[in-house]
Computed example of a mutant assay.
Amino acid sequence: MAAVQRHVTEFCDRFGLQLPILEAPMAGACPPELAIAVAEAGGMGADGVVLDPPDRITAWVERFRAGSAGPFQLNIWIPDPPIEAPARLRAAEEYLGGWGTPGEAGAAAPVFAEQCEAMLDAAPTVISSIMGLFDAAYVERMHARGIAWFACATTLSDALAAQEAGADAIVAQGMEAGGHRGTFDPAAAEHTDVGLFALLPHLVDRIRVPVIASGGIADGRGVAAALALGASAVQVGTALLRSPEAGIDEGWAAALADLPPERSVPTRAYSGRLGRAVPTPFVTAWTRPGAPPPAPYPDQRRLVGRWRRGAATGVDPVNQWAGQGAALARRAPAGTIVQDMWDTACALLA
Rank of each mutant, 00 (worst) to 15 (best):
A159E: 09
F184K: 14
A228K: 07
L133A: 09
S157I: 05
I127F: 05
V171Y: 06
F150G: 09
M131G: 02
A169R: 00
G215M: 08
A169W: 00
D158C: 04
L120Q: 11
V139N: 04
A148E: 00
H180N: 14
A153T: 14
P210G: 08
H202K: 12
E176F: 09
A165G: 04
L120S: 09
R208Y: 00
A169Q: 02
L160K: 14
A218I: 04
G237V: 05
G178L: 09
A136N: 02
D135V: 06
A189S: 15
L133M: 11
A213K: 01
P210Q: 07
I130D: 01
W149T: 14
G220V: 06
H191S: 10
G146F: 03
V236G: 06
D158H: 06
A225F: 03
A165N: 12
A233G: 12
A187M: 04
G215C: 08
A231G: 12
G179L: 05
A123H: 13
L156D: 14
D121F: 00
M119P: 15
A148N: 00
E176I: 12
A122G: 13
P210K: 05
G230H: 04
C152V: 14
E164T: 09
D193C: 11
D168Y: 00
S128H: 10
S129V: 10
G220Q: 02
V211A: 03
P186W: 01
A188W: 01
T155Q: 06
A231L: 06
G222I: 00
Q115K: 12
H202T: 15
P201H: 10
E117Y: 01
A162G: 11
P210W: 01
E117V: 12
T238D: 05
G237I: 02
V234W: 04
G237Q: 04
P186L: 03
V204A: 07
D121N: 08
A172L: 07
D158E: 14
G179I: 09
S129T: 15
M175E: 06
S129A: 10
T125C: 08
G174H: 09
E176D: 13
G178K: 03
G215N: 06
L196H: 14
I147N: 03
Q235A: 07
V139F: 01
A122Y: 03
L203F: 07
I130Q: 08
V209C: 10
A189H: 05
E114V: 10
A136I: 04
S128Y: 04
P210H: 05
E164A: 07
A225E: 06
E140S: 14
V236A: 06
I170F: 02
S232L: 05
R141Y: 02
A123N: 12
A167S: 12
A165Y: 02
V223H: 02
A225P: 08
I130G: 08
A225D: 03
A151N: 13
F134K: 01
Q235V: 07
D168R: 02
L196T: 15
D193G: 13
E114T: 13
T183R: 03
M119S: 12
H202W: 09
A239Y: 03
S232D: 08
T183M: 02
V194A: 08
G215P: 13
A198N: 15
E117H: 10
Y138I: 03
P201W: 03
L196R: 13
A198P: 11
V204E: 07
A136G: 07
D168V: 03
A239E: 01
H180Y: 11
I127D: 04
P201S: 14
A187L: 07
I130R: 11
C116A: 15
I170M: 09
I147V: 11
